[in-house]
Structures are given as structure tokens and as C-alpha cells.
Design a protein around this nucleic acid. Sequence first.
DNA 1: TTTT
DNA 2: TTTT
Lengths: 164, 164, 164, 164
Amino acid sequence: MSKDLNKVQLTGRLGADPELRQTPQGHSVTTFRVASNRSWRTAEGEAHEDTEWFRVVAWNKLADICAQWMMKGSRVYVEGRLQTRQWEDQDGQTRYLSEVLANDIIILDTRRDQTAASGEPVAASTAPAATLPAATVPARPARAAKVAALPRGTNTFDEEDLPF
Amino acid sequence: MSKDLNKVQLTGRLGADPELRQTPQGHSVTTFRVASNRSWRTAEGEAHEDTEWFRVVAWNKLADICAQWMMKGSRVYVEGRLQTRQWEDQDGQTRYLSEVLANDIIILDTRRDQTAASGEPVAASTAPAATLPAATVPARPARAAKVAALPRGTNTFDEEDLPF
Amino acid sequence: MSKDLNKVQLTGRLGADPELRQTPQGHSVTTFRVASNRSWRTAEGEAHEDTEWFRVVAWNKLADICAQWMMKGSRVYVEGRLQTRQWEDQDGQTRYLSEVLANDIIILDTRRDQTAASGEPVAASTAPAATLPAATVPARPARAAKVAALPRGTNTFDEEDLPF
Amino acid sequence: MSKDLNKVQLTGRLGADPELRQTPQGHSVTTFRVASNRSWRTAEGEAHEDTEWFRVVAWNKLADICAQWMMKGSRVYVEGRLQTRQWEDQDGQTRYLSEVLANDIIILDTRRDQTAASGEPVAASTAPAATLPAATVPARPARAAKVAALPRGTNTFDEEDLPF
DNA sequence: TTTT
DNA sequence: TTTT
């Protein structure tokens, strides 16, 4: 079996804050949705625009960084591979869900109103990169993990009991 | 609205011959499925492998080239953007289908048994690139377009009556 | 001869304003340099950082957009192919210069002090995308084209008399 | 300092066998040159072709795999980041050399006459991926490391005494 | 210096 | 559900 390329690259803005969860084994998993905008002109010169939504999943250290530095409205670059989960629904229909399993994320900007609560900029506002030491800023409050279902695990971690 | 990146790149082999159809407006549309293989080892050193299937759509000249030069088993590089179509099924459930709208394709090799029928290599066997003049080789027989449904058009062509 | 992949993708900030020139045939050519930063940790946990400089060339409409919307400090995404020009210097030594021939550019943000002169934001500050109609904003003053040398042309335009 | 994208992706064929060397610290370094072909038509329909040569460097395990599985004529996919080394030559001129520091390589095919010597296919002929267990095939004879100069190290390994 |  |  040969090795192939499977790469997705996208930029866009988060539609909501990322959701951080912990697996029973103690691995972090963060999911979020990204709106990627496109604008184009028809042959006649009419302007159009369009938004494509991506579901993104990040694991472990990358998951923690996402939860800490990104929020609703943040603009990000995401690179990863596309994986499509497939299952039978209650009506016996095959259902598909495609998502990007991230392996690299660059925060292109954070939301402007990030200073709202405190009145002064959180470090994240000048935070260049996802690789900055997390400890230098107060993490955003962890979101509760009201997790349930047990879909198929990713192959990176061989877990059968993911929290989403 | 800002312009964003939405790029998918994959290599893999076609699971079946490409399907070429014509829209009522006379545009060519070719669809095919690509199996992209991945192999990896667990921390313990166990070998694993996995296949991810992509649905790919190509339009116009690129559609014609795909139908002419590619077949079941061909190894290809595909680049395009990911688009997810979404609709309500008969049970009122939202269904999703993600596919790659190709804008560049490189034929990495054609199938080995391409000489099977005739006993001599079809022109595709020496076909270097997707950019070769199509007229220099006999096209593979067009597959019948037993087309029906009317999903959402792609924005590239503003068509409402796609043949697939 | 087969068709191959030759793709470069980078993000970074412009080290200086882009330089726009016109060829004798009336084609626009814009060049600029981009600083792409990288940070990493050694195995021992020491932080390091590094800047890689890219020379970028854009042609025609893309060249005009770059000159109009980008300036020193702008953060951009650039995609293109790498080409290395090569020549003999006066000492008979072979010299090389690699540059990215851009085919897609996304402006990720413009410089913060873009309002400096006028006290109010130039249109570029709200400029979402490189694809906006150029006519809606006053172009930055064209930089003079004090052009001279005649390096090897790009193959896109078959010109022998480039202005840089 | 922010984190940026610096990615090169190319396909092409090796102009010569890869050169494997060992650093004094015992790290493997393999270098090779890849010819990436491009064909295009002018507006008038004339066919043109062009070859771009890339210098590629791989380290450690990836270096070993390259040396073992690739040879002159092999077609490969290479992904990495571009780095430009710069130095003063004996005439005080600044010289530049750009190369791709590989982080992923896919072997797209091996050379057809790989069976030449033995009369039967080496395992590499069916070798799908760069990730196959090296031990299942006889390695190609290691090339001698007649190494000398001391250019600037790559930042991945913090070595000052590279063998090329 | 590759390949078709 | 994002953003300009």
C-alpha cells in the first residue's frame, strides 16, 4: 500500500469559540468550525460571494493551544488531512461527515474585541503565533465538556472513546 | 468579505473509470472517486493502513481531459477546493456531501493493464500530462450520461441543472 | 514531457513597499520581498526564531493589485511557483537567484499605521481581498520605474525586456 | 515574532542518485536534485516546455529512506520549506543558494531499469511508500562520503559542521 | 542533470 | 455560525 498525499489548507474565521474536551485517557481534543469566504465575478462582471464551512479537529498540545488562543471570530490558517466519517443512521441511510484533522495552525489575527471584559488587551492580542508560551497569558475559561457520543477514533491516537 | 484559502491536494488511484456528462448548456462535467492511502505506525511500532475516499468533480476542458486520459486504477494528483453540498433528505434530516472541485490534475501514471484489450498500448500509456492536446489520441468511448437529479450548481458556472 | 508540481506557499510581511514597473509592452510587473518568520524549540526547550526572505514577482492585474493594496509591513499569503534565474557574473561565476512567481495572493492584514498621513483610514484598511475593484480606492502613488537590466523573462509572457 | 507558512511542494525526477552523508555527530544527510517539468502553450497555441531544478536536503530517517529507495530517474513528491543560504564569495560578492529542506517525500515511481544489474526486480520496484520497512530490501550500496565544506547548519539540528 |  |  502506497503512501499518498491528503492535505487540506484553509483560512477563515471561527464561527464560535473552540470546544475543548478531554478523552478518558486524558488527551485533549478541540473542535471548531471555520468559515472560509470566497468572492468571484461572473463573466458578466457581477460580484458574488460564498462561504464554505469546515469542521476542524485538533488533538493534544495543538488542541490546548487552540482552546487557549482562539475564539469566535479569530482568523486562522489550518492545515491537515481530510477525513470522512461514515455511519448508518437510524433509517439505515449512510451518513457522511467530513472534517479536517489539523496538524498545523497559524493564528492570523484574534478578535478585536478581545479586550472587552478586562479593559486591557490580553496577551493574545499581540500573540503572534500558536507557539507562544501558553503560560504567559491567562487561559480563557475552559469550556465544560458535556460530551457524549463515541464515534470512530482518529488513527493518530488509537482511541475508541472520543468525547465528541 | 475577505478572500480566503480553500485548497485540497491529494494523490491516489481511481476506484472506477471517470464519469463524463454534459450539462444542458453543453458543459462537460466529469466525476470520479480517488482512494488515497495512508500508512503509519503506532508508538509500539505496529503498522497500520487506511484508505480515504474522495469524490472529485472537474468541469469543461479539465473534465474532458480526465475522461480521456484517466481510468480505473490511474494514479493522479488532484488539487482543488473543498465544497460541501447540503440538503434535507426525505426524513427531514440534513445530509452533507463533500467533494473536491478540481482546478489542477496531474496524471502520475496510468493503469498497468491499459493494453489489455488491444494488445498494444493506448496513447494514454505514454500520456505525459493532462495538458496534451486531446486531439492527438482517440478518446476513450464516452460513457452514457444517464443523468437525472438537479443538485445545487457550482459557482463557477452558474448552472442550476447539473447532470449529476 | 510530463507536467509536474512546482508550488510555493508562504505567509509573511513585506520588508518594503512593492515596486511596480511597466514593461515596454505595457505589462505591469510588481516585485516585493517578504519576511517569513519561524519559531521553534530545541530538544532542550530553548526558543529560537528565524526569518526567511522571499523575493516575489507578480504580473499584470495581480501586479496592479499588489501595488495598490499592499505596503511595507502588510501581511500576505503568497502562492506561486519557484523559479531560479541563473547567469554568469563578471568573474565567470554562475550566480543564482530564486524567486516566487505569484499566481495567488491574499492580503491577511494591512499595516497598522496606514491611517497615519490622512488621519482617516485609507480604503485599503477595509480592503478585504485582493480581488476588490481597484477603482473604488485611490491607488497609492505609483513608484517610479527606474528600470534597467534585462534578465531572463518569465515564460508566462514571453518577454525578453523585463524592467527589473 | 509570529509563525508563518513556508512550504514548497514539487514533483519531478532525480537528475542523479541521492548523496548520503553522515555528520560528525552521526546524523544522516541526503541531498539530491529534482527536475520539475512544466509545459504550457502561448496565446498563439505554441507548445513550450521548461525544466526547473530543485536542490533538496533530507535529514536523519528521511535521509536514509531517500538513499535507500530513490535513484537517478525516480519520480518523487517532495514537501518542505525553502531556505536560502547566503555567503560572501572570494570576491566579496554575496552569493545565494536556495534549497528545499524536506519534511515529507512520496516516491511516485522508481526507475524502470532498476532491475538492470540483477535481472530481477528489486523490492523497490513494488515499493509503494517511503515508509516501508527498509529491512525488507537490500539497500543500495552506500555512496562514499567524501565530504568537506562547512556551510551554515540547518536549524533543525543545530549543527555547525554539516558534511556538504 | 531527469523524464516522456 | 465568521468576517469586512
